[in-house]
Computed example of a mutant assay.
Amino acid sequence: MRSIFLGGGTVFLALVLIILFFSFVPVGLWVTAFFSGVKIKISDLIGMKLRRVRPSRIVNPMIKATKAGLDIKIEELEGHYLAGGNVNTLVDALIAAERANIPLEFERGAAIDLAGRNVLEAVQVSVNPKVIETPNISAVAQDGIEVLVKAKVTVRANIDRLVGGAGEETIIARVGEGIVTTVGSSKTYKGVLENPDSISKVVLEKGLDSGTAFEILSIDIADVDVARNIGARLQTDQAEADKRIAEAKASERRAMALAREQEMKAEVEAMRAKVVEAESEVPLAMAKALKDGNLGAIDYYKLKNILSDTDMRESISKVTKDTKKD
C-alpha cells in the first residue's frame, strides 16, 4: 500500500510539473512558429516570459514577416517591443512598403513608430495620396474687398522626413499664408473670382512642403466667396475717429475760452473795485483841496457841470441802445 501511495504521489507531482511547464512555456506557439519556418528556441520563449514579454506579441508578427519574405531578426522585434513600439503595426508597414516598392528599412520604420507617428498610415498615404481640406481662409484684395477661400491640398507622405517633419497643421497654416499673400497682391477681388487657379499656381510654387512630413502634389481652390467691404469699413471707422478727435479738440478750445472769459471777468471786477475805491476818495480829496485853497468855488462848479454832462450823455446812449434792440 505504501509503495502504491508513493507511486501515486510521484505521478501526481509529475502531472503538476507538466501542467506548470505547459502553462509557462508556450509550446503551442513554438509549434506554430516551427511549421511556419520561424526558427526559435524554447529557451528564447522562456526568456521572453522572464523578461515580461508576451511571446505572442513577438512570434506572430515574426511569422507574418517571414511569410512575406522580410529579413528580420526576432531580437530586433523584441527590442522594439521593449522600447514601447507597436511591433505588429511596424511589421504590417514593412510588408506594405515591400509590396509597394517603397524603400523602408527596419531601423527607419522603428524610429518612425517610436516617434509617435503611425508608420503603417504613413506608408498607405505614400501609396495613396491624402486630401487635406483647409477651413475658410479670409483674405483681402487691394480694393478692400474680403474674400473667403477654401482649398483642398493633395499630399503624399515623405518617408524620409517623417522623423522630425512637421504635420498637417503646418501644411494648412502655410497654405493659408500663401492664399492671404496672393489675394492681397491682387488689385481687385474680381481678378480672384475670375482666375482662382492663379492662387493655387502661385501657392504651389512657394515650396510650402519644405521641412514637413509630406510632399504637396496639388493645391485646388474648392470655393471662393465674397464677404465684407473691409476698405469701406476702415474708412468709416477712420472718419468716426477723426470726428471724435475734432469734437474733443473743440471741447478743449471751448473750455479754454470759458476759462479765459472767467479770468477777464475777474479782472474787470477787480478794476471796478479799484475805481469805486478811487471814486470814494474823490470827495475827500476835493474837500481837502477846497480847505487848503487849492480848488476854488468856480473850479468846483465847472467840475460838477462836466460830471452832469457826462451822466446825461451816458443816459442818452443807453436809451438809444434800448430803442435799437426793440
Rank of each mutant, 00 (worst) to 15 (best):
M1Y: 15
M1W: 14
I4R: 08
G7V: 02
G8A: 13
G8Y: 14
V11D: 03
L13Y: 14
L15I: 11
I19K: 03
F22D: 00
F24I: 06
P26W: 12
V27P: 00
W30R: 05
T32Y: 10
T32E: 10
A33V: 06
V38T: 09
K39W: 13
I42N: 07
S43I: 09
D44C: 02
L45T: 02
K49W: 14
N60F: 13
M62D: 05
I63K: 01
T66H: 13
K67N: 07
L70M: 06
E75H: 11
E76V: 06
E76F: 11
G84A: 09
N88P: 00
N88F: 13
T89C: 05
L90P: 00
V91N: 00
D92T: 03
A93F: 13
A93N: 03
L94F: 13
I95F: 14
I95C: 05
E98M: 05
I102V: 10
A110R: 05
A111C: 08
L114H: 13
A115K: 04
A115E: 15
E121I: 00
E121F: 12
A122M: 12
V125A: 14
N128V: 12
I132D: 09
E133C: 08
T134C: 02
S138K: 01
I145F: 07
E146W: 07
V147P: 01
V149H: 05
D160M: 02
E169S: 12
T170L: 03
V175C: 05
E177K: 08
E177V: 07
E177I: 04
V180K: 06
G184E: 06
Y189H: 09
Y189S: 07
G191W: 06
L193Q: 06
N195D: 14
P196T: 06
I199L: 04
S200P: 00
V202Y: 09
L208N: 02
D209T: 05
G211M: 11
T212Q: 04
E215Y: 13
I216G: 02
S218G: 11
D220K: 09
D220F: 14
A222T: 11
A222R: 06
D225W: 12
A227G: 08
A227H: 08
A232V: 03
R233F: 00
R233P: 00
L234T: 01
Q235H: 02
D237T: 09
R244H: 12
I245S: 13
A246V: 07
A248N: 13
R254T: 12
L258V: 03
R260L: 03
A266R: 05
V268Y: 15
M271T: 11
M271Y: 13
A273Y: 09
V275F: 12
V276Q: 12
E281G: 11
P283Y: 14
L284I: 10
A285V: 08
M286V: 15
L290N: 02
G293E: 06
N294T: 14
G296D: 15
A297N: 12
I298L: 10
S308V: 08
S308W: 14
T310A: 13
V319I: 11
K321C: 09
T323Y: 14
